[in-house]
Design a protein around this nucleic acid. Structure first.
Length: 789
RNA sequence: GCAGGUAUGGCGGAACUGGCAGACGCGCUAGACUUAGGAUCUAGUGGAGCAAUCCAUGCAGGUUCAAUUCCUGUUACCUGCACCA
């Protein structure tokens, strides 16, 4: 198409003037909330990934619009976060200034996609109007005992002199300077996501999400059934968590993690020094060193002995770093005969190994008959566990329990560019939440944010010093900011009421439009954003602010568009492909269509330029066909093709199979091009079919056919089932599993007639004569299979 | 180590619930129209073979009248988790 850029611009302006993508709440049509993970406003232009996620999903949203849904399709910016802050440290440009500038550019670029966003619902998480309500969320969680402060180990980079978020730790190293991350104890705020572990796990089943994603979340939550067992040591006692309480008679020692609160208390005086030394060594080890499975196990004896509650045997207690303080109780009972790790440790330190399950090998982890186990002898694994758990409970020695791998969510960040945590520390009143009426706690502009290990906000006296809301004495504000994942844990709710100044969102609105019907974004968020957002939704539900259980009913992960070399696109690799030149040359519709046609949306794949010309050629062909339009009349042959096409396109689009939908429309186009003159109706149907795929081009051609603005307000084609039915079929005939012939069969003939027809076929006669027909299988409309001997 | 995923022509990729493997397109070959074509149109295009036919969905088996699809084993790559007691 000539002047494609101009044409696209013309229609975008028209759409904006006419406000055709306006979303109205009171619409009588059925609602549909289509959402892509909102964007981080980076300085550069849109990259291929943006077009891939936003352009392609918009096609689906457009289909739904044309199918008569009241589609809510918003866009906004996840604007807080480290990149802006790091950029500021490098360039001196304030994060607020660069972010706002980036949002401006990005919004302009996003508009070039020609998507159906209603920008009246735009949000920016770094604006006080937004983070006021992020802070409100924090207060509500705090009120409901779902936010608490405690001492915790965090990721510390000694070179940047700051704490890093988990997602900034790549293979145990700082993603900025590759320094090995250390652990450091700091007082931090947490959200009690573990309260929801069970529901987060079980309600996954109901969701229309990719199985792979559910598996990731399930593993992350890591439920395991087991038991607590109490071990006494002198005047103290500690609990261990075990999934194998059936092996209790095989316990030959116990291990506490170096961080265990009893570690020093139970240690005998002559061992104190060694234990302290070991603790220190463990604490300065990096997380990778500490948790490496390759590392030889180490430990130190405490001189103390614990009493095995089932047989009152004394077993030595060790401190060893192969036991993690963050899982279970931070203490384990060791059964070297039936656990590889315990076995390795026992061998090294010459500890007893007592088999309690019959086997030829050591260590043996399979099921088997119990031995050396008094009342468990002869039982298999499951029965033994049940019997033991009952015994523990009856004798008050322990109890059955469920343990989760999931940890509470650490939300404190010692960084500047984030939402301040609305908490005040008063010497008299302690921790005091900022009263709701005082929100937002505004992030001050003039702050020294070069990282030196101290939270940047701590350096702003103006920010820190305040009055206690309860006693009005001098007090100090919390100086950490919130993890940006907090901002994105509820943005899909705010979108619906983006300009509400009185509350985070209106309850009726939320309940009317939520949940999100189709959520599209990368799988990398499986165990972070997607989990956090589910937690927020459930917490808000239990507080009475909304009445649904899950935020995202149906989820799609787009694959990744790789560089032409098959590697992930990156500046350092120099394999990035930028959309801009393609958009300039061919227009945004062509880029969008190439992305849809050239790849499977779920898989992605390496970029190639070749496909661009092919899709461009296709639309040029469509344009030429439009110019061949003639008076309307029905062509029976085309009717059939058209209705079959509509059927397939609708089915494929439902599954995000854009590539095959376009292939089907190409087939329809091929059928049309057989005609010198094409009735206008069939061309209009073609344009309507293509409208969600190529909004600009179809709008232009629609008007060229003499139709009124806008094609996007038309209904999407529907098919007539009676026209899709075939009444003749060409079906294959197999003899002994090999294809030997192909026959034409009409719809309504009997199996006997089919048999007769098939056996008349020359080639079939050849393969069946002088042979006995053992089986004659007819699969209606598909195949005939003959077995001969 | 554990869990999940992927593997189909020269290339991107199709194939619903087991039913004619390779839709659609790129590329390539030949031809047409052209001053020309990197435009457009027509025909062909998985491999071998003159043909009948045979061989082909990572590899090796199995189930079945029939397997890209189901089962067992195996290889390569990708992703997540990783001393989880």
């Amino acid at each position: 198409m000539e002047n494609i850029t101009k044409i696209e611009k013309k229609w975008r302006n028209k759409w904006e003037e006419e406000n055709i993508y306006k979303f109205e709440f009171d619409d009588k049509k059925e609602k549909l909330y289509c959402l892509e993970m909102f964007s981080y406003p980076s300085g550069a232009n849109l990259h291929m990934g943006h077009w891939w996620n936003y352009g392609v999903t918009d096609t689906w949203a457009r289909l739904k619009r044309m199918q008569g849904y009241n589609v809510f399709h918003p866009m906004g910016f996840d604007a807080f976060g480290l990149p802006a802050e790091n950029y500021a440290i490098k360039t001196g440009i304030h994060p607020k200034d660069s972010t706002n500038q980036n949002i401006k550019t990005m919004k302009k670029q996003l508009k070039n996609i020609g998507a159906t966003y209603d920008w009246d619902y735009e949000i920016n998480t770094s604006s006080p109007e937004y983070y006021k309500w992020t802070q409100w969320m924090f207060l509500k969680l705090y009120e409901n005992n779902l936010a608490y402060k405690k001492e915790a180990p965090v990721n510390w980079c000694s070179s940047c002199n700051t704490v890093l978020a988990n997602e900034q730790v790549i293979n145990g190293e700082c993603d900025r300077c590759q320094t090995t991350i250390e652990r450091k104890e700091m007082s931090q705020w947490f959200f009690k996501i573990t309260d929801y572990a069970e529901e987060l796990l079980t309600s996954l089943d109901k969701l229309d999400w990719p199985d792979a994603t559910k598996v990731l979340q399930r593993n992350w939550i890591g439920k395991s059934e087991g038991a607590f067992v109490n071990f006494k040591v002198d005047d103290y006692s500690f609990k261990v968590f075990t999934t194998r309480s059936d092996t209790l008679f095989g316990v030959t020692y116990c291990v506490l993690s170096p961080e265990h609160e009893l570690a020093l208390k139970i240690t005998k005086p002559e061992y104190i020094e060694a234990v302290k030394k070991y603790q220190k060594e463990a604490s300065i080890q990096s997380e990778i060193e500490r948790t490496s499975t390759l590392k030889e196990k180490t430990g130190v004896f405490t001189g103390a002995y614990a009493i095995n509650p089932v047989n009152n045997k004394k077993v030595p207690i060790y401190i060893a770093d192969y036991v993690l303080s963050t899982y279970g109780t931070g203490a384990v009972m060791a059964v070297p005969a039936h656990d590889e790790r315990d076995y390795e440790f026992a061998k090294k330190y010459n500890l007893d190994i007592i088999p309690v399950i019959e086997s030829d090998t050591l260590p043996f982890m399979e099921d088997g008959k119990h031995i050396n186990s008094e009342f468990l002898n002869g039982l298999n694994n499951i029965d033994a566990i049940n019997k033991m758990n009952n015994y523990l409970k009856d004798n008050n020695l322990g109890e059955k329990t469920t343990n989760y791998r999931l940890r509470d969510w650490l939300v404190s960040r010692q960084r500047y560019w984030g939402s301040p945590i609305p908490i005040i520390y008063c010497e008299t009143c302690g921790i005091v939440p900022v009263p709701e009426k005082d929100l937002p706690v505004v992030l001050p502009y003039d702050v020294e944010f070069t990282p030196d290990g101290e939270s940047p906000l701590a350096k702003s006296d103006e920010f820190v010093n305040c009055k206690c809301p309860l006693c009005n004495k001098d007090a100090k504000r919390e100086v950490d900011t919130l993890d940006t994942f907090v901002c994105s844990s509820w943005y899909f709710l705010r979108f619906l009421d983006a300009n509400n100044n009185n509350e985070p969102f209106n309850k009726e609105r939320i309940n009317k439009i939520m949940p999100v019907d189709k959520y599209v974004g990368g799988i990398e968020h499986a165990c972070m954003h997607l989990l956090y957002a589910r937690f927020f939704t459930k917490a808000l539900r239990d507080m009475g602010y909304l009445n649904f259980d899950e935020p995202f009913k149906s989820l799609v992960h787009q694959g990744i568009i790789l560089g032409p070399d098959g590697e992930k696109m990156s500046k350092s690799r120099g394999n990035t492909v930028t959309p801009d030149p393609i958009v300039e040359k061919y227009g945004s519709d062509i880029l969008r269509n190439y992305l849809m046609f050239g790849f499977n949306y779920i898989d992605g794949g390496p970029w190639t330029d070749d496909g661009i010309t092919s899709i461009n050629r296709f639309y040029k062909r469509v344009e030429r066909l439009i110019d061949k339009h003639s008076q309307d009349k029905e062509i029976e042959k085309l009717e059939k093709v058209l209705h079959k096409t509509i059927k397939s396109v609708l089915e494929d689009l439902e599954e995000f199979q854009f590539n095959t939908s376009i292939a089907r429309i190409m087939e329809y186009t091929n059928a049309l091009s057989k005609y010198e003159e094409i009735p206008k109706y069939y061309l209009e149907q073609l344009l309507l079919l293509l409208a969600p795929f190529a909004p600009h081009i179809t709008e232009e051609l629609w008007s060229r056919l003499g139709n009124d603005f806008s094609i996007h307000n038309m209904n999407y084609p529907t098919y007539d089932a009676s026209k899709v039915i075939e009444n003749t079929f060409e079906i294959g005939v197999q003899v002994n599993g090999k294809l030997r012939a192909s026959v034409n069969i009409t719809d309504n003939i009997s199996d006997e007639e089919i048999k007769e027809e098939v056996l008349k076929h020359e080639n079939i006669i050849k393969y069946t004569k002088d042979k006995e027909i053992i089986k004659f299988i007819i699969v209606p409309k598909k195949i005939v299979s003959i077995v001969v001997k």
